[in-house]
């Protein structure tokens, strides 16, 4: 399970990445399990990235920055 998340989270490299990938994609148990976790992540990502900062907040912040000077 931990290996599955390491793989999905892009934390594996080199030989271990190749070996794990080859196994997950060929294994009858691991493959759907992988797809399951991917479907979960896709839902989280879609929901989490859906919101944008309100336009008036952006405008207000730009105004504030214009009148603020950095400390040195």
């Amino acid at each position: 399970m931990s290996l599955l998340y390491d793989y999905l989270d892009g934390e594996l490299e080199g030989v271990s990445l190749e070996r794990v990938k080859a196994h997950f994609e060929a294994c009858r148990m691991c493959y759907p399990h992988l797809r399951f976790e991917e479907a979960f992540r896709a839902a989280i990502q879609r929901a989490g990235r859906g919101e944008k900062a309100p336009a008036d907040l952006k405008a207000h912040l730009l105004e504030l920055l214009e009148s603020t000077s950095a400390e040195s």
Partner: peptide, 30 residues
């Protein structure tokens, strides 16, 4: 933390690839 996700075992027969996640509206996920 090892082994199979028990939730996945629960859906293994009906929706093994977790398509149900995609049916849930964003507001509910949030």
């Amino acid at each position: 933390e090892g082994g199979v996700n028990p939730l996945w075992s629960a859906v293994e027969g009906s929706d093994p690839e977790g398509e149900f996640f995609g049916s849930i509206v964003d507001a509910e996920v949030l």
